[in-house]
Design a protein around this nucleic acid. Sequence first.
DNA 1: ACCTGAACACCGTTCAAGT
DNA 2: ACCTGAACACCGTTCAAGT
Lengths: 214, 214
Amino acid sequence: MPLSKERVLGAAVALADAQGVEGLSMRKLAQELGVVPMALYKHVANKDELLDAMVDVVVGEIDPPAGGTDWKTAMRRRVLSARGALLRHPWTSRVMESRASPTPAVLAYMDSMIGMFRAGGFSIDLTHHAMHAMGSRLLGFSQELFDETADVGPGMDAETLRELAGAFPHITELVVAITHDQASVVGVGCDDQFEFEFALDLMLDGLERLRDRA
Amino acid sequence: MPLSKERVLGAAVALADAQGVEGLSMRKLAQELGVVPMALYKHVANKDELLDAMVDVVVGEIDPPAGGTDWKTAMRRRVLSARGALLRHPWTSRVMESRASPTPAVLAYMDSMIGMFRAGGFSIDLTHHAMHAMGSRLLGFSQELFDETADVGPGMDAETLRELAGAFPHITELVVAITHDQASVVGVGCDDQFEFEFALDLMLDGLERLRDRA
DNA sequence: ACCTGAACACCGTTCAAGT
DNA sequence: ACCTGAACACCGTTCAAGT
């Protein structure tokens, strides 16, 4: 099977999925494909172009806008579809943020999102503010700085727990409350999907209210 | 002047401010300090620890919570103070996101923010959702994926502009509208500070409404 | 003309040798 | 005991040599 841009991209995405983007190097990718490193440069100008192309693979997995519903439902669905793609390829958000300018595929996605606001009756100005306010949430970034329950796993003795509670009383109160809520549920930690939708709906509802007021 | 952790951190922050975090290497940092690379390892265990310490320098620049006002004003001020610190050191958001777990200083900041919601009358559950919904905005991340006007500068001929308009009609409409709005203002492009505050207030207003409804 | 190995200019960090 | 140069194991990419 000869090398092709498609095969290079597929292997790169798979490697990043498996090892994270830090584990992706031209040399490792070549080895994965059973090829000398320089062979990759026939299909990709350099690593930056490879990263851009990988982003476009993920963006290509986002569903097109659903027809036959109101703007809010359609946008909600599409953002959740984008979130699904990013959850399958968690390296994407980091790579996108590190890139200097967006790829044409990302621009096309943004263009389509702007169109959905416009079709929903939003003025140009409000659409502009809305796009900024949605920010990277448009693409399904959950933009969590950290998972508050990840650090408070079973591998922590009572002594350090007591120290934590002293240093960060409010975090502790919050974690305890969450954990108790979920005593009956399997596993611990908060429901990321719920939190994402909570924030998304808060945003969409607020924007709708601003539109109706104008 | 002997090398100290303080001096190493100061030089590292200055180097990242000037060259971006990609331009920061242990070797360059050592050269900047007129020191052999290995000398740094007396004050910092490794590069990861250096990055964590640099983040803490920036977090240390965030104002403490203002007393004597309502929760909303106090939180608004503090978030804008955090945004100021991040604007002075634009590499911080990227570094924070690349770190596996938050530093104690970041945890302390989050703890204090949770405390401000609680003092404002938010239930534990709503505070939890609020922290997630605010996400990295709590720290002043503007989380723009790109600046829509940056790519449409003067260095673009009419032909490529027409192509862009065909491919991305909605983006074009938006950029044209923004540019016209600001014909009288010096410079082109949207007001990032306004957009940030717009999104912040949308969030805070929405959260307040949810609190009052409960 | 095409492919590719060696080489270049980097990187973070280890480790042993020198003081 | 402390400091540090050389070395190791990487990296993306250039370039000339080999076919």
